[in-house]
Design a protein around this nucleic acid. Sequence first.
RNA 1: GUGGGAGUAGCUCAACUGGCAGAGCACCGGACUGUGGCUCCGGUUGUUGCGGGUUCGAUUCCCGUCUCCCACCCCA
Length: 545
Amino acid sequence: MIKAVRGTRDLLPPETALWNFVESAARDVFRAYNFQEIRTPIFEETQLFARSVGEETDIVSKEMYTWEDGGGSADQELLDAWLRTHFREVTKLVQPQEFPTAGRSQRTRYGPSVQVEWNGSWTLVRARYGAKNQDLRHLVQHGNAWREMHGGKPVSLLLVTARGSVPEAFTTIARTMGIVVDELELRVEAPQFLTLRPENTAGVVRAYIEHNLENRGLNKLFYIGPQFRRERPQKGRYRQFYQIGAEIIGPRHSGSDKPLRDAEILEMLDTLLRRLGIRNPTLHLNSVGCAADRAVYNEALRAALAPVVIQMCADCQRRAVTNPLRVFDCKVPGDQPIIEKLPLIKNYLDKDCQEHFDNVKALLRAAGVSFIPNDRLVRGLDYYSRTAFEFTHGALGAQNAILGGGRYDGLSESLGGPPAPGIGFAMGEDRLVLALQDQTPTILGGPDAFIAPIGEGMNREAIKLAKELREKKVIVELGDRSFRLKKLLETASKVGARYAIIVGEDETNADIFKVKDLITGEQISVPRAELPQKLQSGRSQGRSS
RNA sequence: GUGGGAGUAGCUCAACUGGCAGAGCACCGGACUGUGGCUCCGGUUGUUGCGGGUUCGAUUCCCGUCUCCCACCCCA
């Protein structure tokens, strides 16, 4: 039997009613704040996410669905031929899996890579279809490890590019590291590397740049849709998951960088969560400063950790090296005294960032939105700056965060666009629905009426009547006369119809139908013209469809 | 990716140390051929997740694998 693949699932009625409830409440609220919908493609060029989310983040390095689209095979042949010509004395080939930097990140490779040993020196051959800054960053970060792996032998880098153009700066910096860069231009069609979107902000910013949305001034955009991450599934965490998010983005002169926008979006979220009926939504708020502040802070944090890290738990020792900010997430009691003495980002904010943060807080107080300043709140994605926030709700333990977001003032530039400060959030719809299910039972309305035709030819009358009623916005389920009346009424109550309409020969001739109330059991006769009004009067208030 | 738990009817779950695979709910038919719910009678519930092994015999024991759940990693 074919089953839904791991980490994906079907959303079935009646649960889908709850999803629709959440989405329409969100649309309503967004409308009131003048947000408009944007729909971006479900897959994008891999580079978009690598550059915005951050190449070294877990999302990009191991959790994306990436594949090669088009091209590819022909250039691999050319590359093989080139290798045979230029490395006649090839002594060893190292497959990508064996690279020192490979491991988990290999899943997101950008092109065929192979290492060749020749005359006692090593060459890393990477076909990356146009060397960009990512290659350089990668080289700087891993160049030394790479050399060490080969016992200090000389190493060189051969970039195989489909479109030529290795930036000069790239070659220069590589040379200072003792790495020689050669370039081979293959005139073949380059394959594209595509990725199912792991989040939607990058796509929105890409669209902003591509369509010059800066000309519209301040853009207030929202999206609702599926995202994809190749994580280990867990409750409320799926490989295809749904996010509802919104962004305020625009050129600086539109005021998109102002604290007012931070406050507006946070107040909107508070309103939305309350509208949805989330109990005790709690806003955790912090400022992570700008890029420069964070670099300084990161160093300070590393310096502070260095002497004490040895006393901490194994996880923290690892975090201290890979991602010091995450040390703050540690829950081991023994580590807490150490963590409490670590430097906090708030002491490293420059004047503008501090002022921005103070303003946001003042505006929130004015708007009556309560919040908890949280010095330890950090965001994992590279593009965040200044305001960072998270909403949690009372229950649900470790997974009580239902949305997160923040400001991303430099993102557009890093994607090659104009300056476009922005702030946004993304809400995990799966978890939100889960939380709502915990606190309220699903309500699903049945049809207003069930038409029960009895006797020869009555199906024709029934379908006619059904069309007539449906045009008048009556929700109608249609029965089939080949079943006995007993069966029809049974079905009518099973589907949750409020009324059953009996359509027989006598009724049709007189144009007066018997209408049975399936809750009270009462039965009355209603002239055809009065049917719509009578049937709709039975609607209960809890009806959600 | 790591560690732990669980997979038996559509659903919720039984089956003592290895001995004919069961109950409730739901579903279908009838009692009742133009009047549902209640009641009564009858019926199907099935590759015990999948594959292999041990055994006269495996839902049960062993190995592999898949999926889900929980925790970790990480995180909107």
